[in-house]
């Protein structure tokens, strides 16, 4: 059984800055494949990831939101048919102070064994999170995470 992945990273920043960096377009464009998210960030509202040309790569719904601490998303890929076919996944983003850092934990799970979708995100999350850390701590994200992905070649 392999239907849940957990990613954790410690970032020297404040909880509010990290929260903003996770949801605000001016930040996400720099480390999350030039994408931004659209949502009004309230429980039950729709949520999606959008590329600069307007393509929706992923969409879902806000299951739970408690800024600047916890965000739970219903998350379905819309871009690649074989990933969309697996149905919705659930992503939990959790922020907590640890010493002089904020621990960011991302949990991504799906009700399906050997999920291709989780396989795809398992390439994406580590790259995105380490780029986010660089952005917040040094002011510069990793160059390869700033590029707009294409359907056959994307890091998420």
């Amino acid at each position: 059984m392999k239907n849940k992945f957990v990613y954790a990273i410690y970032i020297r920043t404040t909880q509010q800055k990290l929260w903003d960096a996770l949801i605000k377009p001016e930040f996400t464009k720099q480390y999350w494949c030039n994408s931004h998210q659209e949502s009004n960030w309230t429980q039950g509202s729709p949520w999606k990831i959008v590329l600069p040309d307007g393509t929706t790569t992923d969409m879902g719904e806000i299951i739970e939101i408690d800024p600047p601490k916890k965000l739970v998303l219903k998350w379905q890929n819309e871009w690649r048919p074989e990933l969309k076919a697996e149905g919705p996944s659930r992503a939990t983003i959790f922020l907590e102070p640890v010493g002089d850092t904020i621990k960011l934990t991302v949990t991504h799970e799906i009700e399906k064994d050997d999920s291709k979708f989780l396989g795809a995100v398992s390439n994406g999350w580590p790259a995105i999170l380490s780029s986010l850390k660089s952005l917040l701590e040094t002011g510069e994200s990793h160059e390869h995470t700033r590029k707009t992905p294409t359907r056959d070649k994307c890091i998420v």
């Binding site: 849940k4 957990v6 990613y7 954790a8 580590p126 999170l129 780029s131 990793h142």
Partner: peptide
């Protein structure tokens, strides 16, 4: 227990 690949990614970066 879960494997967290993020520190290995940071080494690669």
């Amino acid at each position: 227990h879960y494997l967290n690949p993020v520190p290995i990614q940071q080494i690669a970066e």
